[in-house]
Structures are given as C-alpha cells and as structure tokens.
C-alpha cells in the first residue's frame, strides 16, 4: 500500500525532526540570559543555600550530563520536573494540553467551515454588495487585536446581555465531571454527561468566537480567490455549458476544487493559532498550555519550556502530515 509506506516514511522523518527540536530547545533555554534560581533567591539566601537548590534541581552537573539525563527521561516518557511547582511535567501537561487543543481545534474547524461557505458565496456574487460586505467585514475582524476583542465580547455578551457565563474557567462550578482528556467538552461527550456538556460548550463560545473572528478572514480570502479562479476556468464553463445540475455543479466542481487548495493553509493557520492562543487564554482564564508555557518562559523553568517546544513541534508535524494526506485524498493529481 502506497499510503502506508508514505505514512511510515513521514513518521520516520519525524524522529530526526524531533531530535533537532530537543537539542535546540535544550541548548537555547540555557543560552538565554536569566537563571531559574533567581526565583528562589531572597535577601537572606546564602550562597550555600543556592548551591543546595542547584544540586536538588540537578543543575550542578555539566550540560552534557543534564542533556543525557533529559533525553534518557524522554525515552521513558518522563519530561522532567517543573522547577517552579516541583511536580512532574507530564502531570501538568495532561491537565493543560487538552483544554488548549479543544479551543484551537474547534476554532480552526469552525473558521474553515465558515470560510468555505462565505468564501464560495462571496465568489459567486463577486463585486456585488454582499461580496463587499463580507470582504470588508472579514478584514475588520482580522484587524481587531484578540485580547481587546475578547474583552469586548465579555463586556457585551456576559456583562450586558448575560448570554454566556463569566470568563472564569471552562465549566461551571459544581458540575460533576471526571477528567479524561482534560478537554471538558470532549470529556462530557465521552461520559454522556449532558449538563456538563452544555456548561462546557457555553464556556467555549466566547473564546472560540474571539479566535474565529481573528483568523477566518485569511482563510476566507483564500477560498474566495480559489473559487473565482475556478469560476473563470474552462472546466467550469464546460460543466455549465453541458447543463450539469446546480447541486452537482456546486458540490463536485466548485466546493471540491476550493477545498483541495486549502489543507496546507489550514495547517499554517492552526500553527499560528496555537502560538497566539495564550492571549485568549489569559482573557478568559482558560487554564491551558499557553499560559503555563508563558509562565515557564518568564521564570526560566527549563523543563517546562523544553516540553512546550517539543509538544508544539509534534502538533505542527502532525498537522502538516494530515494536511498532506487530506490534500492527496482531495486531489488525485497529488502523488504521495
């Protein structure tokens, strides 16, 4: 099977990629100015105390030894221990990775659907008033800073209209839900817990909307441009001249064609959202990976930074792999 062979090849390529990421992130955090011990130092700390802390954190040995310990841990699934909290990274990550991915993936999927529908609709009405409204609207959406937009949405839809819950977490207090993946909406769905599900979804609406408004414009413009290109192509003219039914024409010829040009862009957008999600997490008190990673960076919490970079790299690599596969599924001319 060609696709299995291709998948195997790509996954094998993941190994050197991740190795490079591991080495780079390990070296770079140590080259950066700043010392993780600074957080433990008070006016009364003696240099002996500092040495002790350094020993306890395993930072007293050579960089090479630290590296072999770290890589050895990676093979056992141990990402190290957070300097700040003292708890294992894997534990911390398990409660934070899910919520962030839930936010990011739902936002990107909604943006994608929105972009496809609006973009194609806009292209079918190119240069008419509806088209202009959509284009200008999406441009304004992109131009709004996310943290500000988030605050506005909170002010309007929570404080004034009371449509959505307060930005203070991911489910209402008192909702009984055992965590499986950490992504509350998904967990509630798995557990079949409807109360929890509706609560989780209600909490998701505003942060997701903030991200969607920010990113759908670029996707939509891309869809619109592709659709306009298809509408002007000899292919479209032929199908139209042969009187193919409108439904088949839109689905088989227009939507399919525009969708096939999207996967790579979606993967790029997903990466951008993952990088920028920290602002939204802050505004909505979303205890996710972004906030955790930012704090780790500020306090030079080496293991946290390393783990964060590694996780991002894996998400990116998987996103691009999926994009390439989807592309090949949609467009028969793409050879894997």
């Amino acid at each position: 099977m060609r696709i299995v062979r291709y998948l195997g090849l790509r996954l094998a390529l993941l190994v050197p990629t991740l190795l490079g990421v591991v080495v780079l992130s390990f070296v770079l955090v140590r080259v950066l100015p700043g010392d993780p011990l600074a957080a433990f130092v008070t006016p009364s700390t003696t240099s002996e105390d500092i040495e002790k802390i350094r020993q306890r954190l395993g930072l007293d040995v050579s960089m090479w030894e630290q590296f072999t310990t770290y890589v050895g841990g990676l093979f056992r699934g141990d990402l190290g221990t957070s300097i700040q909290s003292g708890s294992p990274i894997t534990t911390e990550l398990s409660t934070r990775f899910g919520p962030t991915m839930e936010l990011v993936v739902i936002s990107v999927v909604i943006s994608l659907l929105l972009a496809l529908v609006l973009g194609v609709w806009s292209a079918l009405r190119a240069n008419r008033p509806e088209d202009h409204v959509i284009r200008v609207g999406s441009l304004v959406g992109t131009a709004l800073p996310e943290f500000w937009l988030g605050l506005i949405l909170i002010a309007v839809f929570y404080k004034t209209l009371h449509w959505f819950p307060a930005p203070s977490g991911r489910v209402d207090r008192g909702v009984d839900l055992t965590s499986i993946t950490g992504a509350e909406g998904f967990d509630a769905l798995l557990a079949g817990n409807l109360t929890a599900l509706s609560s989780a979804l209600a909490h998701l609406v505003l942060p997701v909307a903030t991200i969607v408004i920010g990113i759908s414009a670029s996707l939509m413009r891309h869809v619109r441009a592709s659709a306009i290109e298809i509408l002007a192509s000899p292919t479209w003219r032929t199908a139209q001249a042969h009187g193919v039914r409108r439904g088949a024409l839109l689905r088989g010829y227009l939507l399919r064609g525009t969708a096939a040009r999207l996967p790579t862009l979606v993967a790029i957008v997903l990466g951008n959202v993952l990088g920028g999600v920290v602002l939204v997490e802050y505004v909505f008190s979303w205890q996710g990976m972004g906030q955790w990673l930012l704090r780790g960076l500020l306090y030079r919490d080496y293991p946290v930074i390393q783990a964060g970079v590694l996780i991002s790299a894996v998400v990116f690599a998987v996103a691009y792999l999926v994009a390439d596969l989807v592309q090949a599924l949609l467009d028969p001319r793409v050879k894997l």
């Binding site: 292919t235 088949a248 064609g257």
Partner: peptide
Amino acid sequence: AMCFQHARAALEPMRQVRKQLADRLRA
C-alpha cells in the same frame, strides 16, 4: 452541447470520467 477546445483542460481534474458522465446523464 459543446465540445470545448483543449479537452484536457476542460475536464474537471478532480472528478473521475465516470462521475462526469453521470453528472450529464442524470441532468
């Protein structure tokens, strides 16, 4: 019905011949 010039470019690249025939036969 028109047979367009440059047939290769006028056929829908992502649709099998079978489906493109079916589109017309159904319509």
